[in-house]
């Protein structure tokens, strides 16, 4: 699994985008958690934290739990957390099966996830 974090600046806002590629499971989920925690620490005031899962090829319950924990942490910090899933079935399917498509703030593209 690869993780990269970068800043995206649009005319209407700024985001820190954590891009994940590959499989998220018990073997790799701790790295996702660490990247999200670091993202919250580095997040500029007023910016949005975005987790881009477009290139994720597998998502199981460890990853789902990490996304839920990240969302709850964002709510406690009163900072927005947007999750990009587009229409990739390996990610959408488990999110829907677990009934998390209401709790998680889901977007189809990174562009849509960054405030504009």
């Amino acid at each position: 699994m690869r993780i990269d974090t970068g800043r995206v600046v649009h005319a209407g806002g700024e985001a820190l985008v954590v891009t994940v590629a590959g499989e998220i499971d018990v073997l790799t989920v701790d790295r996702l958690r660490a990247a999200v925690a670091a993202g919250f620490e580095q997040l500029p005031d007023g910016a949005t934290l975005v987790i881009d899962l477009t290139d994720v090829t597998f998502l199981g319950s460890p990853g789902l739990q990490a996304l839920v924990d990240a969302t709850r942490a964002a709510q406690r910090r009163r900072e927005p957390l947007h999750i990009v899933v587009d229409h990739t079935r390996p990610v959408i399917r488990p999110i829907e099966l677990a009934g998390l498509d209401d709790l998680l703030a889901l977007f189809h593209t990174v562009d849509q996830a960054v405030p504009s």
């Binding site: 199981g60 319950s61 488990p94 677990a98």
Partner: peptide
């Protein structure tokens, strides 16, 4: 994980 894993 188990709370989510079994329903999944």
């Amino acid at each position: 994980n188990r709370r989510r894993g079994i329903p999944l």
